[in-house]
Amino acid sequence: MKNYTLILLLAITLIGCRQAVDETTQVDQSMQQVITTAYKSTETTNAIYHWKTTFAPDYKEWEFLHRHNITRLYIHMFDVVTERNYESGRWDIVPIATTKFGQIAPENIKNIEIIPTAYITVEALREMKGKEQEYAELLVERLRAMARYNKLGKTQEIQFDCDWTKSTRDSYFALCDAARNLMREDSIALSATIRLHQLSQDAPPVDRGVLMLYNTGNLKSVETKNSILDIKDVEPYLKQEIKYPIPLDYVYPTYGWGVKFYRGGNFNAIVSNPATETLEKGETMRNERPTVEEILEVKKLVEKQLGKPSIGNIIYHFDKEQLNHYTDDDIAKIFSNN
């Protein structure tokens, strides 16, 4: 009798599990549908990253967004790092560099979807091992709370940015999985940044990916030609056509800087305004700013091997001073889906 009861219980459990799996699949499909439907209506959806700790665009910046029909804005909300707790002696995982928001006129973001984004350091990810569910809850809730509090409109997607590698992959995937499950009920998608070196591995369990096509070279090497973008650094990762398992969009750099080296070639500093920088005897500086031609060359290669972007192209980043180096025509060419 006892055995029969056990078998019966096992059967019920298995049926239950099956139902749960089916439900998950259904939700995944419906989520994909939501995303596809949302972006089907426009031919391309232009997007831009805001990666500063104060969000207070001026009139000209808002005007830039509207002029270029940018309807998606990825805003960096905070970084997740480890910090020594001197009372407990342990490493705490804490948010830092939380973005401050100035007044936002409702008409300025009327047609713009904000995607709250959090950068997670690898150290924090390592520390999260085994506690991914707990931190997924905190990350999701904090990103959503920031969007709510600062009246950034209805959140339809949030994004994680992390330079995960093979050794931290499992933890990152568990974090993404937990976060996606949390947001499923509210039909909020989870996207993640994908770095070129991550293309060769499994895709994280997220709804969409954003391939970062900047910071492709070795910044600190004096030998590097352009660490922001150089097709020679991109090509090795895109030698052949790739069928990436999740929809991808592409981010192109629209910024530049100077990289200063000591005499002897050791890295010294990044210089935000190279024109005014003075060099000591023996020091050298590399000016880096990808030209539109260089960006379009990379774009051609990326689209050849990975296909057109699923929603649209993205530029990095929303900074008036940096964008001034590119003409409207340049920006239009980068966004163009033709």
Binding site: D92, V94, P95, T98, L138, E141, R142, A145, M146, R148, Y149
Partner: peptide
């Protein structure tokens, strides 16, 4: 908590 942000559930 360091994680707290107003309106956080």
């Amino acid at each position: 908590s360091r994680w707290y942000y107003p309106t956080m559930r």
